[in-house]
């Protein structure tokens, strides 16, 4: 049912954990099945230098979380914002139709983390 890539990221998830001094954190709940994902980013000079996740969810949710943290590392904020749930699913060689909604979780958590980062920066400069 899952591609080899999904199973690879599920069995060996990259970047699991927290970033104690994170610059942005996004937590989202999946309204469809009740899963939760938390994604933290570290930003230096406008680039995401580190990303870590924690996920309470199915195999697809864990694999997409892992994949999205891999995809954002080294990207500028602007580039990271362009990462869509579709891009994450494609990077995993696709997801079963009933699991596509899980990839929303990862992209949403990323966008929320970036939003959090921007708000913190605004608060600093204000």
């Amino acid at each position: 049912m899952y591609s080899q890539k999904v199973m690879d990221h599920f069995t060996n998830p990259r970047n699991v954990g927290d970033i104690p001094d994170a610059d942005g954190v996004g937590t989202v709940g999946n309204p469809i099945c009740g899963d939760v994902m938390k994604l933290a980013i570290k930003v230096r000079g406008g680039r995401i230098v580190d990303a870590k996740f924690k996920t309470f969810g199915c195999g697809a949710a864990i694999a997409t979380s892992s994949m999205v943290t891999e995809m954002v590392k080294g990207k500028t904020i602007e580039e990271a914002l362009k990462i869509s749930n579709k891009a994450v699913a494609e990077a995993l060689d696709g997801l079963p139709a009933n699991k596509l909604h899980c990839s929303n979780l990862a992209a949403d958590a990323l966008h929320k983390a970036i939003e959090d980062y921007r708000q913190r920066k605004q608060a600093e400069s204000a």
């Binding site: 069995t11 099945c33 009740g34 899963d35 309470f56 969810g57 199915c58 195999g59 949710a61």
Partner: peptide
């Protein structure tokens, strides 16, 4: 704190077949 499908997948990787009533 954990989800059933991810338990099942992990068990299956170890050759154990079970089932779950989780939403996922």
């Amino acid at each position: 704190f954990v989800e059933g499908e991810s338990i099942l997948l992990n068990l299956d990787l170890q050759g154990i077949a079970g089932s779950s009533g989780s939403a996922c």
